[in-house]
Write a protein that binds this DNA or RNA. Structure first.
Length: 296
DNA sequence: ACGCGAATAT
DNA sequence: AATATTCGCG
């Protein structure tokens, strides 16, 4: 089984078209969005969990063989590229809510209690680098809808969270903490007083790369994620599967400051059930997921 | 002014 | 469908 994975990868690599072939004639090498999406920025803004662009298809830079482990090539727009797009007016790439991210989200909400579970707080509790309040707010809104939908539907046959329609696939991936399905109760009770949120939004320091799921805006062209950086995420064979984000709290050099706790579950890297790069086909959109799909 | 949440937009 | 952005309201 494992061979399949390494196999596809090899094949994939071989099939990589030459860089020239890739870009028909459109636009620059690295989308500005990509740049900022990852870490190329100067001031003190924007970080990025798992984000996606919307516009141009992801440019490829890793031709073949060994990906750059560490830094990636700088966007050289010199020769052919030409149209260096306005580096300004850059918009933040769309955040992609991976199951993991969502899990974190749910845990946060769970521990906060419905009452205190408002975007800002949730965001803080999650302490995911680059996550904005609006990101959370937006997700929260949808999540609430999901919960409502669920309550109405939960009666009857054994359908709770194991076969929900595609509509809620993301949400289905994390166990809804019971008491969610009915508001009314803050936390207290049997739910821990967890996490003092010492870390808060501390955004300076360096950046972390991200991007775990990439979406291609178009069909069929050979798009590939920038494995240059995230390559090794695809090999969780050791079970030590960690995401670049979900992690913005990793450093607390020195002593006393312990940023925060892990919310709820202690990172359960159970066996990779299926690490298939999930090809979600919808319309003209292919989603490449590097994460375990289903549950963790 | 803050920031939540519903509505609306992409 | 999934996220983002806008907007009215406490």
């Amino acid at each position: 089984m494992r061979e399949d994975e390494s196999n596809w990868f090899s094949k994939w690599e071989e099939q990589l078209p030459s860089p020239e072939d890739l870009m028909p004639l459109t636009q620059t090498l690295i989308t500005p969005d990509l740049a900022i999406a990852f870490d190329i920025r100067s001031p003190h803004n924007l970080h990025s969990p798992s984000l996606q662009h919307h516009q141009q298809p992801p440019p490829i830079s890793t031709p073949s063989s060994q990906p750059n482990s560490g830094e990636f090539d700088s966007p050289e727009l010199g020769g052919g590229g030409a149209g260096d797009e306005p580096a300004r007016t850059l918009k933040r790439p769309r955040l992609v809510w991976t199951p993991q991210l969502h899990k974190r989200f749910v845990d946060a909400v769970a521990h906060l209690g419905i009452k205190n579970a408002v975007p800002k707080t949730i965001m803080q509790l999650m302490s995911v680098d680059g996550l904005t309040r609006e990101n959370v707010a937006s997700h929260l809104q949808k999540y609430r809808l999901y919960l409502k939908r669920m309550q109405g539907l939960s009666s009857g046959s054994g359908n709770g969270s194991g076969g929900d329609p595609a509509t809620d696939h993301l949400f289905a991936s994390s166990p809804v903490p019971a008491h969610f399905l009915h508001q009314g109760r803050p936390n207290s009770d049997h739910y821990l007083p967890y996490v003092p949120v010492a870390a808060l939004q501390q955004q300076h320091h360096h950046q972390q790369m991200a991007a775990a799921a990439v979406v291609a805006g178009h069909h069929h062209p050979q798009l590939q994620p920038r494995y240059g950086q995230i390559g090794h995420f695809g090999s969780p064979r050791n079970g030590q599967f960690d995401h670049p984000f979900l992690n913005r709290q990793s450093h607390s050099h020195s002593h006393s400051q312990q940023p925060i706790h892990r919310v709820g579950t202690p990172i359960h890297n159970s066996v990779p059930s299926s690490y298939v790069d999930d090809l979600e086909s919808a319309n003209g959109r292919k989603v490449l997921t590097l994460f375990p799909t289903g549950d963790d």
